[in-house]
Simulated assay, not measured.
Amino acid sequence: MNWRKSTYSGGGEGNTCVEIAALTTRIAIRDSKAPARGTLSIPAPSFTLFIEHLKHHP
């Protein structure tokens, strides 16, 4: 998987946020500080709606 961090990631190492990876039909999400602890995956359309909501309701 190709994990990406947010451009808003803070901290000296940039490791104080979540990372995402695009799968075929889902988006995988993990904690950048503890990547081995596990991942959450949700349907890609639901993730898109979630991000759009965050953009309009900070």
Rank of each mutant, 00 (worst) to 15 (best):
22 A>E: 02
6 S>D: 07
50 F>H: 07
46 S>L: 10
13 E>K: 13
57 H>Q: 14
30 R>W: 00
47 F>I: 03
33 K>L: 05
45 P>E: 04
26 R>P: 00
4 R>G: 06
40 L>Y: 03
23 L>Y: 00
35 P>F: 01
9 S>Y: 07
8 Y>S: 14
49 L>C: 12
26 R>G: 01
49 L>Q: 14
18 V>W: 04
50 F>D: 01
50 F>K: 09
10 G>H: 09
47 F>G: 02
26 R>S: 10
1 M>L: 09
43 P>Y: 01
57 H>A: 13
47 F>Y: 06
29 I>N: 04
50 F>I: 03
44 A>Q: 09
18 V>M: 08
41 S>D: 05
13 E>W: 10
9 S>T: 13
32 S>M: 05
32 S>R: 01
54 L>M: 15
2 N>S: 08
27 I>C: 02
17 C>D: 10
56 H>F: 08
32 S>C: 09
40 L>I: 15
44 A>N: 06
34 A>E: 12
14 G>T: 01
50 F>T: 00
26 R>I: 03
17 C>G: 13
49 L>Y: 07
25 T>M: 07
55 K>Y: 10
11 G>F: 04
8 Y>A: 13
9 S>C: 15
25 T>K: 11
13 E>S: 14
1 M>G: 07
13 E>F: 10
45 P>Q: 09
27 I>R: 01
2 N>L: 14
55 K>A: 15
30 R>Y: 06
55 K>Q: 15
17 C>I: 07
53 H>L: 02
3 W>V: 03
50 F>E: 02
21 A>G: 11
43 P>R: 06
15 N>F: 05
13 E>M: 11
33 K>R: 09
40 L>G: 05
11 G>C: 09
7 T>M: 08
6 S>F: 08
38 G>V: 08
9 S>D: 08
